[in-house]
């Protein structure tokens, strides 16, 4: 159980990035955090990862307070951040250096096969495409079998086709060991595709604004009407979180609906 208790963060320059954010996240749950820029979602993720310390409140995993990177918490960044001097296989095995070599080799091979890159084991990171590199990064984060996997806009640098491909792929991988996934994104489609629960944040200071549970069975059909309904709900919440006048947007969508019905 991952618990966030009134987590707040004020940077040394006085920027109030995050205020009293609380949430309880069950093991195996997929949570998407979405919000406009400057709403503190990356700050929150870095606090959970133990990369930055919260200035108030606490993050606990199974009642242990997180103050520095934790063995059971993995993270995937927006960029693959592969080490260019290591082969793809050695990148995947980067977090396994304590294991004996033969066990490590087996785990690496299995992880690479799972992300469909078994033939790239000996390649250099520079020889990979953007999507392949991010798949290696996913394998690297999953191979130590974390209980919690954090994803910081992991697919935002990729084209739409690759992104959908990797979203499906991520769900398949998640189904293997069912870690908790916490995904920061600004893509509503991505949030509704992946998450059990969407946390909408509002900026200045970053706060939890609304919580939307997506009780859709997986695999989800991105073209279904229900899916669209959830997307619309998240979008509406986002607009309200930014104090944007919702009127013209609803006007547009009701016009669209009028054409359908």
């Amino acid at each position: 159980m991952l618990a966030l208790k009134e987590v707040g963060k004020t940077y040394p320059n006085g920027v109030h990035a995050l205020e009293r954010f609380s949430a309880a996240i069950k093991p195996g749950e997929i949570v998407a955090i979405i919000g406009g820029s400057g709403c503190g979602k990356s700050t929150l993720l870095r606090a959970i990862a133990g990369l930055d310390r919260a200035t108030s409140g606490a993050v606990t995993l199974d009642n242990a307070t997180i103050t520095s990177p934790h063995a059971k918490i993995g993270i995937i960044f927006q960029e693959p951040r592969l080490l260019p001097w290591l082969s793809v296989a050695d990148n995947v095995g980067f977090g396994l250096s304590e294991l004996p070599a033969d066990v490590r080799r087996k785990r690496i091979a299995a992880a690479l096969a799972r992300v469909g890159l078994a033939d790239k084991a000996e390649a250099w990171p520079r020889e990979l495409s953007g999507g392949q590199a991010q798949r290696v990064a996913i394998a690297r984060a999953l191979v130590p079998q974390p209980e919690v996997l954090l994803l910081d806009e992991p697919f935002s640098a990729l084209d739409a086709f690759t992104r959908r491909d990797l979203q499906d792929h991520l769900l398949n991988l998640w189904a293997d060991t069912r870690p908790t996934l916490i995904l920061v994104t600004h893509d509503v489609d991505e949030a509704v595709t992946l998450a059990d629960r969407v946390l909408v944040m509002r900026p200045r200071p970053g706060r939890l604004f609304e919580e939307i549970t997506i009780n859709l069975a997986r695999p989800r059909d991105r073209k279904s009407e229900l899916f669209d309904n959830f997307k619309r709900r998240v979008l509406t919440a986002l607009d309200r979180s930014l104090d944007r006048s919702v009127r013209d947007l609803t006007a547009k969508s009701s016009a669209g609906e009028a054409m359908w019905w």
Binding site: L51, S68, P69, A71, F77, L83, W85, F94
Partner: peptide, 26 residues
């Protein structure tokens, strides 16, 4: 960002130098 990868995998100071800094500086 690469140094941060080392932190995520909880490298000690010596391991950080050996596995991240040295190859990056080479």
């Amino acid at each position: 960002k690469i140094v941060e990868v080392g932190r995520v995998f909880r490298l000690s100071g010596a391991a950080m130098i050996r596995r991240i800094l040295l190859p990056a500086v080479l």
